[in-house]
Design a protein around this nucleic acid. Structure first.
Lengths: 328, 328
DNA sequence: TTTGTCAGTTTAACCGTTTAAATTATTGGA
DNA sequence: TCCAATAATTTAAACGGTTAAACTGACAAA
């Protein structure tokens, strides 16, 4: 080991750990730092991990990294973690409970001090497993807050309401809604918000169909809506379905936004790249990534304190896929 | 520790490592396995890592995880790694040499046995650093193959030629090309392939402009092409620029594919979701992910053997953004 | 001069595996 | 029955850090 600095291993350790640095003399610190630089030394993470009982790696589990919703979140999480001298390892549950369990087990073996679980569903046995072992966790929209358990609550409702108000203000009265997979809480909340919002305006005629958050599903759902008493505006519970809806309209030669206005949800990067650019509700994904990390860090550094509930807000981004009735 | 099985730690270790399992009696194995199950035991990765001198985590560095080109690769890499009892940690260089170095250092501290570097550029000092420490590496399109260094070569040329032949067969003679950032090898190769291919056909009039692989860049480049002697077909060196080009055409009311055919490159997921769906050259990203892992695994398990060069092929996917001259 | 105090540094135990080597148990042959 | 050979298991030394506790001077006060 780099004890070319003519000091003991302990001294090196003290120098390299900010918290202990004060204990040793400036001169000695210089010597150590010089040796570190000269040897290109970096401490063995495994040894440190073993000694400290936990690693500096945080786990992040998402349902589908291929879904453009997630990379932004994980990228910010990781960048923030790196700034704090930690690593992030991102795993994919692929919407599969079995894989979720496996991923958690992998993370446990890695001795992670905390985990961010950013999926729309999770078995409570997994949460319990984590809780029992004292691993801090932050969930997305799962509600529960406890010792070492935080939650990030996305305000879907105000986004949906904003979308509804927007198309209503443009003069649309017949409004369709394409919902996400109905067994997912987050899908239910968006749908309920839509229905509740629509109730307020007697003049509105609404029709809601459930789908599955995919482009394909949005296509089918939109086809269904268009073949009935045709709405002049459609709000989709995510951008992928909105894109599917745009395709369905395109294939039937229904002009957007001339004959049909479409609003998405999420504001994935490609929303603005659609033709026409998609009006959508932005979910602040980088905030989610940042908050997920920060709340984990807080809980890890002070495990006594209870977890917290964090709220993130959504807002409407108006682009060109919506227009006034009869307009274009 | 789980020595509730009334055996020594060594025995547990032997049972849990397939290679040594034969050494111990079936009865004893059962006892150990039962204890493992009962305690929900999983071996401490850090301790194992420390004892063995290297971890079971592989590093993957990409230039930009937000670019939809990469998540597919990393997801497959990770899935394959998991099937082989290894983890993958994905880092983002953000096209920044400094961050690349940092990422490599982080991975070194983690004692990774191998690294996949999937960026279009890398300083040779980084390659040397890795090589010196005996860390296996696989690069994307960086050419060098050596002890513990493999390379995945993407056959950009045949894809570009296929795209060119395709538009030529449709009757286009005035063909524009939007190139990627000219300092990147992979951009140069695509451009050169285009120019070389165009030479073969005397009748073709081509114009190539350089850009930067971004949607914005594609927009600007296409605007430039459209404002001169207007081409009837444009081939872009990646899909993002092709999408930018589609926007430029849309904003100028140039109809696609009626007045302008556009071909992209990569076949990112959103290519088929564009309106109209984008004709593009598919780069087999899941193959890249799989091969990157497999070649790393091979090199790691037998470090004596030299690295290998792997080729992956591209192929044209014809959709609706290209059509015969004067058609639609 | 002795003693106490304190800053600076070192010692040594520990973290939980792997693995070579040592030990103990079992088996089969004389 | 005893012994050798072999099978099964245990022992103990790494691995490279962290950290409580011990140590070492230097200096100030008695």
């Amino acid at each position: 080991m780099a004890r070319q600095a003519r000091v003991s291993v302990a001294t090196v350790s003290f120098v390299l750990n900010a918290a202990q640095r004060h204990r040793i003399r400036a001169k000695t610190q210089e010597r150590v730092l010089a040796a570190v630089k000269q040897l290109g030394y970096s401490p063995n993470a495994a040894a440190r991990n073993l000694a400290m009982g936990h690693s500096h790696i945080l786990g992040v589990i998402v349902s589908d990294i291929r879904n453009p919703f997630f990379p932004e979140i994980t990228a910010v999480f990781q960048e923030t973690a790196n700034l704090n001298d930690m690593e992030a390892i991102v795993m994919n549950s692929n919407y599969d409970a079995q894989r979720m369990k496996q991923s958690v087990n992998r993370l446990l073996a890695l001795q992670v001090p905390g985990v961010a679980i950013l999926t729309s569903q999770i078995e409570s046995s997994v949460m319990d497993n984590l809780a029992e072992r004292g691993i801090c966790a932050v969930y997305l929209d799962l509600g529960r807050v406890d010792a070492c358990i935080s939650n990030i609550a996305v305000d879907y409702e105000s986004g949906i309401i904003a979308a509804l108000e927007h198309v209503r203000a443009l003069g649309h009265e017949r409004i369709g809604f394409i919902g996400g997979a109905p067994h997912l809480r987050s899908a239910q909340r968006r749908k309920r918000a839509f229905l509740a919002g629509a109730e307020k305006f007697k003049s509105l005629q609404t029709q809601a169909v459930d789908s599955n958050f995919s482009v394909q599903g949005g296509y089918v759902a939109c086809s269904k809506l268009l073949s009935g008493l045709r709405p002049s505006a459609i709000i989709a519970a995510n951008d992928l379905m909105a894109i599917g809806a745009m395709h369905a309209a395109y294939d039937r030669k229904v002009r957007i936004p001339g004959e049909l206005s479409i609003v998405g949800f999420d504001d994935i990067r490609f929303a603005e790249h659609m033709l026409p650019p998609l009006t959508t509700v932005a979910v602040p994904r980088s905030d989610i990534g940042r908050i997920a990390f920060e709340t984990l860090r807080t809980m890890i550094s002070d495990p006594a304190k209870a977890g917290a509930e964090h709220h993130v807000h959504t807002h409407l981004v108006v682009r060109d896929s919506t227009a006034a009735m009869g307009g274009e």
